[in-house]
Design a protein around this nucleic acid. Structure first.
Length: 226
DNA sequence: ACCCAGGTGGCCC
DNA sequence: GGGCCACATGGG
């Protein structure tokens, strides 16, 4: 008897078919990815965009510029993203670390994946999701990004326990799908798109964008060997 | 007036 | 090593 679970690539296919390519991360530069990854921590992306716009309008979307400006000014500019006291410190901690140890961002991002992740995680204010976002979307190395949506959606699909830890779920994804940067990027973006629009606090249901193929129902149709 | 958003660190036991 | 909690803005 097979366990009733969903094949991850099948879900990916349905999401891609429904939403189309997302082409994440929405940023013009690698540094903007880093900034966005920090600012979006538990924040609405729309608010993050305001903060990013403020920085760009003041020609501050550069590592050395953020490194130099006063933290007070930084706070004022990123204010709309929320948690501006801690996030300004996080941005400062990052650029301090960057210029203490490297010549520029590209040199840092060129580190091997594991070293890069280890160093990012050692920084104050950078946890696993932020680290993996930087690794995947700025360094463009294959580290699957897990967020609250991922945990919520895939536990409801019956694939994983709701209490699953970050690294465990990340490993599950990485063992289940091809180790491909473009796939990782697109899959995570699609999960967020699904989560944003249709998976707030209620279980996936008929309102799911997948319609008749809503994951809540999908789990009754798709099997993988258990 | 609630509740939430592309988390993380600090503290307590 | 888990279980709470603060952090802050803007939109539904």
């Amino acid at each position: 008897m097979g366990v009733m679970v969903v094949d991850l690539l099948s879900v990916y296919g349905l999401l891609l078919k429904h939403f189309g390519r997302q082409k994440w991360w929405p940023a013009e530069t690698k540094f903007e990815v880093v900034v966005g990854a920090i600012l979006t921590q538990n924040a609405n992306w729309k608010n993050v965009e305001r903060a990013i716009t403020n920085l760009k309008d003041n020609d501050l979307m550069e590592p050395d510029r953020i490194h130099r400006i006063s933290e007070e000014r930084l706070k004022a500019l990123i204010r709309p993203a929320g948690y501006y006291n801690s996030k300004s410190r996080k941005l400062k901690e990052f650029t301090n670390f960057l210029f203490d140890n490297y010549n520029d961002l590209n040199e840092f991002l060129a580190l091997p994946l594991e070293q890069l992740r280890e160093q990012l995680l050692s920084l104050w204010g950078i946890g696993p999701e932020t680290a993996d976002s930087v690794i995947l979307y700025a360094a463009e190395k294959p580290s699957f990004v897990i967020d609250a949506y991922t945990k919520r959606i895939f536990s409801r699909l019956g694939l994983v326990n709701e209490e699953i830890g970050y690294d465990t779920l990340k490993n599950f994804f990485e063992r289940s799908i091809p180790r491909d940067v473009s796939l990782y990027k697109e899959f995570h973006a699609l999960i967020v798109e699904l989560g944003k629009n249709y998976c707030k606090t209620k279980p996936l249901c008929g309102a799911c964008p997948l319609g008749k193929e809503c994951p809540e129902k999908l789990k009754h149709k798709v099997f993988i060997p258990g």
